[in-house]
Simulated scan of single mutants.
Amino acid sequence: MSFVERYTNVTQDVILEGLKLVGVRYKMGGNSVENGLDCSSFVQMVFKESIGAYLPRTAREQSQVGEQIDASQLQPGDLVFFNTMRRTFSHVGIYLGDNHFMHAPRAGSEVRVENMNNSYWQSRFNGARRIIEAR
């Protein structure tokens, strides 16, 4: 198997694992499908279940893992960060491609896919990190 095939498959595993969780309810501090997930536990669970990668628990801690990348370099599987609580790196999601990402947004909501071109997300974008190495 070539490196390209291997990393493409790793990325697919991450994306498919995340998409399985679409519809799971949001719960601040939640860390299970049954009780609900918050943004960082969603990301943490997806990476652990799909590729066995252990990420830190909070969005702020996750913003320190992997390689920092520019928005113009985004690839599926990259982590995207937003300032949603008047502090940097307070929200995290997983980039899907075509300016879409999946995340656990807020109380009263559920894991879903959204467009980063939406003005709300555009104005709050903080940066991105690559966890899955060169693909």
Rank of each mutant, 00 (worst) to 15 (best):
Met1Thr: 15
Met1Ala: 12
Ser2Val: 14
Val4Ile: 09
Val4Asn: 02
Val4Trp: 04
Arg6Trp: 11
Gly18Ile: 06
Gly18Trp: 05
Leu19Gly: 02
Val24Glu: 04
Arg25Lys: 15
Arg25Gln: 14
Tyr26Trp: 11
Lys27Gly: 04
Lys27Met: 11
Lys27Ile: 06
Asn31Gln: 14
Ser32Arg: 09
Ser32Asp: 12
Ser32Thr: 15
Glu34Phe: 10
Glu34Leu: 14
Glu34Thr: 13
Asn35Ile: 10
Leu37His: 05
Ser40Ile: 01
Ser41Asn: 03
Phe42His: 01
Val43Asn: 02
Gln44Lys: 13
Gly52Ser: 04
Gly52Asn: 06
Ala53Trp: 15
Ala53Tyr: 15
Ala53Ile: 15
Tyr54His: 08
Pro56Thr: 09
Arg57Trp: 13
Thr58Val: 10
Thr58Trp: 06
Glu61Lys: 02
Glu61Ser: 08
Gln62Ala: 04
Gln62Tyr: 14
Gln64Phe: 10
Gly66Glu: 07
Glu67Leu: 11
Glu67Asn: 11
Gln68Asp: 10
Gln68Ser: 12
Ile69Tyr: 05
Asp70Cys: 02
Ala71Pro: 08
Ala71Cys: 07
Ser72Gly: 10
Gln73Trp: 14
Leu74Ser: 03
Leu74Glu: 03
Pro76Lys: 04
Gly77Pro: 07
Gly77Ile: 15
Gly77Asn: 02
Asp78Val: 09
Phe81Cys: 01
Phe82His: 02
Thr84Val: 12
Met85Lys: 06
Met85Glu: 10
Arg86Val: 14
Arg87Lys: 05
Phe89Glu: 02
Ser90Pro: 06
His91Thr: 04
His91Met: 04
Val92Trp: 10
Ile94Ser: 00
Leu96Met: 05
Leu96Glu: 07
Gly97Phe: 12
Asn99Glu: 13
His100Ile: 00
His100Val: 01
Ala104Tyr: 05
Pro105Trp: 09
Pro105His: 03
Gly108Val: 07
Gly108Asp: 05
Glu110Phe: 13
Arg112Gly: 03
Arg112Glu: 05
Glu114Arg: 00
Asn115His: 03
Met116Val: 10
Asn117Lys: 09
Ser119Gln: 07
Trp121Gly: 00
Ser123Tyr: 10
Arg124Lys: 11
Asn126Arg: 07
Arg129Gln: 15
Arg130Glu: 15
Ile131Asp: 12
Ala134Pro: 13
